[in-house]
Design a protein around this nucleic acid. Structure first.
Length: 890
RNA sequence: GCCGAAAUGGCGGAACUGGUAGACGCGCCGGACUCAAAAUCCGGUGAGCCUUAAACUCGUAAGGGUUCGAGUCCCUUUUUCGGCACCA
């Protein structure tokens, strides 16, 4: 009876389903004394294409860990669900008229079937679907919590609006405006990323991906919902420190959050249009270079532009603003080589040296970062220098590299102990040395040929002269603070999360509008607010969602007030549901709350989370944000959701190229399973290399895996009779094989429990073990039992089958993971190598743990070693226990 | 441009804190079984020294360094991949 993967896999998959083998018991049933392990895959979007071989890679890895932990007496939570709201399904509906709900159900059924055919040990009783109203009811609920909360900066956490202190003396409208300005979910009118092809706006992290797909993204002013994630910027940044995440991923989040320290400084405006006491405020990370600020630049959209522009310059400025407005963000960046701008006719006063400097506008200054205005230091900022050269603005060097320190100034100790700093162009000559390199540096900077952006020492900077950049920063900041011209300040690149989309297939907002600037939230009891039925998913054409066309649904009468109101017609982004789905798995059926806190306390945080890097700054940042928010309000026990994160690499086509339909190199896991079986697929996915690496698929490789499984089968089963091989005995194991078994147990146990996800070496060790078993005349059943258990997390179907055939009962899934004895896992002979001057000259099998003296003697007795040290002086002998002896001769 | 990761046989990849480079698999070569083939089993397989064995030399992208000893540590360069990119 030959190894029949199809039959065996079908049999055991059915067994697992019927027996609910992998069901994680309800919270009140589990033994809470046992340790827990929550192992999670990034849940997929159930697309029409089905799974590709990239999916099972991460899923198999987590499955191995889940199965291993179960066998090690952990309570394991290993769930799967569907990130089911999303644009492709809606576009499919537009094309075919098939309702997204129906399409989603089809795709989910297909995906679930495929996942089950891989033999993944999910608890299907906990399956969630973000587009299911029982699920998104709670997405809407969290949104309401955000809407009804504010961030208390002093306490450093979010609180319900009921605790918000409202300033006195406000009328009703003023109060409302104030409260709205504090909500963590708020409506904001301003420029957003709009994609005409998609008919929707996009969040910043989605823009790059959509452009790559060939969609255009333009800037457009629209009123949109945003979530105030920026309030959490610092906590999101610092929280990273304690997480066991890949360094590059943490770095990506840090970059995305983009914290920079510097100062806000006010520059007084001099304009014919404006009276005294008006200022331009700038943010700078280099306040120490303020003496070199020779002009200012405002973003074209800066509100002060219209006020300060003089009549003489009005036309050019207006033209420029218009031209800039027409450019998309992308165009602005692409044209970055050539700086453009216009003079406003206004001047400002540099507070450091009271110089009168011109104020210009340019689109290289972004309105959305800092204050939308900069002080320009062309000597020490490349962008400013480019602009200064183009517009013939003065460049003053105010910072020099440390190398020039001694030439640029001299610090003399005065009699009273204070320091006198001598500086000036002539210093080098006074000292009796002329430094051409230094003067060349100054000249080149003034001409715009050199731009030193590093840190060094201040020159031409009045009271900052001679200070290091760090000291100069401190000094100038305390100076502006004393003079009430500014303060130390921190800025972030992170923007608030654009949270609304003009789509049908998403969570509706539980919001009604009385008029343009007066909205109200539904009560929690009114949730879920379900999607209205329709057969038209076409965008309204006005930049509103398809829901806007459904007049009966949109226009309603508010029961509380009796007023006619309109429903919010936007829907939430796909990343809403994925920001908290991992909590729902803990308590998927709860209809009282999104997740019971006691259960969350037990199961969270996720102990191992595996997915691709593409979610580095989107999903992973938003999920952390929501977790922190729920923590602040006391709904969650933990502040960080994912303790250990691992990024799986990409699986390339056999040609080493990215898999794509157009290249015709796509491997379909269904075909692979049909031909070689799920166990071969699983094993090969893990054998290809470390999980994080990008590596090509190989048909020859999977054939090899299939061969390995057949070899295991024949080792145990007589293909002629279908019975156990006659050489399997009930005797005690042969010592040699037993030692190798223990070594193998140790190797695999470490490979899985260190969570480095390098299972290729575990499989290699199993192969070594099987090769050795083939050489044995008799094999003890005990050894085979243990081996099958070792194999089971990797290739569970064949393991279950062999386990039964070896005469065992029940499933391998909850058997005790094999233990190893350290003594047995040790080799009984070690190979010690002898080298002379670092070159290998001989080796010998020796007993372990010989003394240094004994090893030394062994080396000196070696014929080849003798040949190489003959007639030479032995300088020194280095002995590494159990490893090597190196003889150094002269 | 900046930041990060990587580069090892014909291929995928091993090598724990510096200590036998190339585990394991694929491919290839040889043998056994067979009328023959497939499958299977056994053996070999970094390069060079005309063949073989021993011995020797070279060899982990390139060059240099530290060390008794470097794939591993340090410096320089090249290439590949990933991320960021007017964020003041």
């Amino acid at each position: 009876m030959k190894y029949n993967h199809t039959e065996i896999e079908k049999k055991w998959q059915e067994f697992w389903v019927v027996n609910k083998t992998f069901r994680t018991p309800d919270f009140n049933e589990i033994d809470k004394e046992k340790p827990k392990f929550y192992v999670l895959d990034m849940f997929p979007y159930p697309s029409g294409d089905g799974l590709h071989v990239g999916h099972p890679e991460g899923y198999t890895a987590t499955d191995i860990v889940a199965r291993f932990k179960r066998m090690n007496n952990y309570n394991v939570l290993h769930p799967m669900g569907w990130d089911a709201f999303g644009l492709p399904t809606e576009q499919f509906a537009l094309k075919t008229g098939i309702h997204p709900k129906i399409r989603t159900a089809e795709c989910v059924a297909r995906f679930r079937g495929q996942l089950q055919s891989i033999g993944l040990s999910y608890d299907w009783d906990r399956e969630v679907n973000t587009s299911d109203e029982k699920f998104f009811r709670w997405t809407q609920w969290i949104f309401l919590k955000l809407y009804n909360s504010f961030y208390d900066d002093e306490a450093g956490k979010a609180k319900p609006l009921s605790e918000l202190k409202i300033p006195e003396g406000l009328d009703e409208a003023g109060k409302r405006e104030f409260i709205d300005s504090q909500r963590l979910a708020y409506l904001s009118d301003g420029p957003v990323n709009w994609s005409p092809e998609l008919g929707t706006v996009l969040a910043n992290d989605e823009v790059a991906e959509q452009i790559e797909k060939g969609n255009t993204v333009v800037r457009r002013n629209m009123k949109q919902w945003k979530l105030r994630i920026t309030k959490y910027a610092d906590r999101l940044l610092h929280g990273l420190d304690e997480l066991d995440w890949p360094a590059n991923l943490k770095e990506m989040q840090r970059n995305w959050i983009g914290r920079s320290e510097g100062a806000m400084i006010k520059f007084k405006i001099e304009s014919e249009n404006l009276g005294d006491g008006r200022y331009i405020e700038v943010f700078t990370t280099r306040p120490d270079t303020i003496f070199g600020a020779t002009y200012m630049v405002l973003a074209p959209e800066h509100p002060l532009v219209s006020e300060i522009t003089t009549s003489e310059n009005l036309n050019t400025v207006d033209e420029y603003i218009l031209a800039a407005a027409k450019k998309s963000d992308l165009e602005r960046q692409e044209l970055s080589k050539e700086k453009t701008g216009a003079f406003t006719g206004a001047f400002a006063i540099n507070p450091a040296n009271n110089k009168r400097i011109p104020v210009l506008i340019s689109d290289y200054v972004l309105v959305s970062y800092g204050t939308g205005a900069i002080m320009s230091v062309p000597g020490h900022d490349e962008r400013d220098m480019e602009f200064a050269k183009k517009f013939n603005l003065e460049i003053v060097p105010v910072c020099i590299p440390a190398d020039f320190k001694d030439t640029a100034f001299k610090i003399i100790k005065a009699e009273d102990g204070s320091e006198i700093i001598m500086s000036g162009p002539g210093l080098g000559y006074i000292e009796g040395k002329s430094d051409n390199v230094f003067h060349k540096f100054l000249e080149q900077t003034k001409k715009g040929e050199t731009c030193f952006t590093g840190e060094g020492y201040a020159i031409n900077s009045g009271f900052l002269n001679g200070l290091t950049t760090a000291d100069a920063k401190k000094k100038i900041i305390s100076w502006v603070e004393e003079n009430k011209l500014g303060k130390k300040s921190v800025n972030y690149k992170l923007r608030d999360w654009l949270f609304s989309r003009q789509r049908y297939w998403g969570e509706p907002f539980p919001i009604i509008h009385f008029n343009d600037n007066d909205a109200a939230a539904l009560n929690e009891s009114e949730l879920p607010l379900v999607l209205p039925e329709t057969d038209s998913y076409k965008p309204s054409g006005t930049g509103e969602s398809p829901l806007a066309n459904l007049k009966d649904w949109v226009n309603i009468t508010d029961e509380k007030t009796g007023r006619k109101v309109k429903r919010e017609t936007n829907t939430m982004p796909q990343l809403a549901g994925s920001s908290w789905y991992f909590l729902r798995f803990i308590d998927p059926l709860n209809s009282e709350t999104f997740c019971d806190k006691e259960k969350e306390k037990y199961w969270m945080p996720v102990d191992l989370y595996i997915g691709g890097t593409e979610h580095a700054v989107g999903h992973l940042l938003y999920a952390r944000f929501w977790q922190k928010f729920l923590f602040d309000l006391g709904y969650a026990y933990y502040e960080e959701p994912f303790r250990k994160l691992f990024n799986q690499g990409m699986v390339l086509g056999e040609d080493g190229q990215k898999m794509s339909k157009s290249k015709g190199n796509v491997i379909n896991p269904d075909d692979v399973i049909a031909q070689y079986g799920a166990d071969s697929l699983r094993l090969f996915e893990m054998f290809m290399g470390p999980l994080e690496a990008t590596k090509p698929w190989s048909t020859a490789g999977i054939e090899g895996m299939n061969r390995f499984l057949k070899r295991i089968w024949r080792l145990i089963i007589d293909e002629e009779t279908g019975n156990l091989k006659p050489n399997i005995t009930d005797e005690e194991p042969e010592i040699r094989l037993n030692k190798l078994l223990h070594f193998t147990i140790k190797k695999i146990t470490h490979d899985i429990s260190d969570l480095d996800m390098k299972f290729n070496t575990s499989i290699a060790q199993m192969m070594i073990f099987v090769n050795e078993l083939y050489k044995a005349e008799k094999i003890s059943r005990k050894i085979l039992n243990q081996f099958v258990l070792l194999l089971s997390p990797f290739a569970p179907h064949i393991a279950e089958e062999l386990w039964r055939r070896l005469g065992n009962q029940y499933s391998v899934s909850y058997e005790q993971w094999p233990r190893y004895e350290e003594e047995l896992a040790k080799a009984d002979m070690v190979t010690v190598v002898f080298s002379v001057n670092g070159k290998l000259r001989g080796k010998k099998e020796l007993q372990p743990d010989l003394s240094d003296k004994e090893l030394e003697q062994e080396a000196l007795d070696d014929q080849n070693v003798i040949k190489h040290i003959m007639g030479k002086e032995v300088v020194k002998i280095i002995v590494v226990k159990n490893k090597m002896v190196n003889i150094v001769v002269r």
